[in-house]
């Protein structure tokens, strides 16, 4: 799952980003509300972490603006104010959840996972598609009755495919998921990862859509 972090405090943003990356969440960072809108237009994100105290005061109107534009991406709001009114306002504007500073990293991760689970209409954190089981809490995977060991990037790609079965995931999206905005777009590393996944789950597990991207096929007729 790819996360977009909107935070104008660089030290805080850096800490969150490092932590989420370590937990296999590709995280992009921007400092302004306007950058958030632009990023959502060009890339797909699993969740947005938005600081309510952006210096330009744009946070609350921003959520409303996103919802009016039909953006359904879950938004987790970070707030430094111990003020229930503000938190309720954020939730009413369309935020999915909020977290008060200072917070524990584990709580941030759990809340993001729960937001995604709710967004994808699931009741637990285990994906089960095409005979593959993937646990999102401990990041373990089973296939054909045995444990499968995954690298971090393989895990990120597999999770993306399993969360969107039978839907085309573009090359660009997959590349950004693995390497972020700053990654080397020209490399064919993503293809290498998909090749490795096919070796582990069978060659027909992910179908190549020429010129567009890849798609997980949940049922083989």
């Amino acid at each position: 799952m790819r996360i977009l972090l909107v935070e104008d405090d660089l030290l805080l943003a850096d800490g969150i980003r490092t932590a989420l990356q370590r937990m296999n969440y590709q995280t992009e960072h921007c400092t302004r509300g306007s950058e958030l809108v632009a990023a959502l237009k060009t890339s797909e994100f699993g969740a947005v972490v938005l600081d309510l105290g952006l210096a330009d005061g744009s946070s609350l109107p921003l959520i409303e603006q996103l919802r009016r534009a039909g953006q359904t991406v879950p938004v987790l709001v970070l707030t430094a104010l111990d003020d229930i009114d503000i938190e309720l306002k954020a939730l009413n504007a369309g935020a999915g959840d909020y977290l008060s500073k200072p917070f524990d990293l584990r709580e941030l991760e759990v809340r993001l996972r729960v937001l995604a689970r709710r967004h994808q209409d699931r009741t637990d954190d285990e994906l089960n598609v095409a005979g593959i089981r993937l646990n999102l809490v401990n990041q373990r995977c089973w296939f054909a009755g045995r444990d499968v060991t995954l690298t971090n990037r393989e895990y990120i790609l597999l999770k993306e495919f399993m969360q969107h079965p039978d839907k085309i995931r573009s090359r660009q999206l997959l590349e950004e998921l693995c390497y972020g905005w700053d990654g080397d777009i020209d490399s064919n590393a993503t293809e290498v990862h998909i090749h490795n996944l096919r070796k582990k789950f069978g060659s027909s597990f992910v179908k190549t859509v020429r010129g567009v991207g890849y798609m997980l096929v949940s049922r083989h007729d």
Binding site: R22, A80, P102
Partner: peptide
């Protein structure tokens, strides 16, 4: 209290990052 929360959050985050 509002202004102290952000630096506190930074301290906690990075401390956790060190340990992990």
């Amino acid at each position: 209290s509002h202004e102290l929360r952000t630096p506190l959050a930074i301290l906690r985050l990075h401390a956790q990052n060190i340990s992990q």
